[in-house]
């Protein structure tokens, strides 16, 4: 199964997001064509309510532990509650350009 699909399905099953976007950004990096190494996840879930950012990220790292262990090289995370997502009105920061060090 494609990495992008696996990430999407696992996050959907565990965190029941009201909004979820998984973008493969590997083409922006120093890796072979069609790689599935760099991803950006924007996820809105009630389960983040009352949790600090680090706890939200830890939750996702846990759900995706096996993917992070084998395959995912970089995972940009934007974790929001429904209220925060409304305030942002869809404005999520772009991931940075590659500097060549992804070995």
């Amino acid at each position: 199964m494609q990495m992008q699909t696996r990430i999407t399905e696992k996050l959907q099953a565990e965190l029941h997001p009201t909004h979820l976007e998984v973008v493969n950004e590997s083409h922006m990096h120093n890796v072979p064509a069609n790689s599935e190494s760099h991803f950006k996840v924007t996820i809105v879930s009630d389960q983040f309510e009352g949790k600090m950012l680090i706890a939200r990220h830890r939750l996702i790292n846990k759900v995706l532990a096996s993917e992070l262990d084998g395959g995912i090289h970089a995972l940009a995370l934007h974790t929001l509650t429904a209220t925060e997502w409304q305030k942002k009105a869809g404005h999520i920061a772009d991931s940075p350009p590659c500097h060549g060090g992804s070995k």
């Binding site: 991931s95 940075p96 590659c98 500097h99 060090g101 992804s102």
Partner: peptide, 12 residues
């Protein structure tokens, strides 16, 4: 990855 003067990764 790298140094603040010469970072080797966009996230760093």
């Amino acid at each position: 990855k790298g140094t603040p003067q010469m970072p080797m990764c966009g996230f760093s």
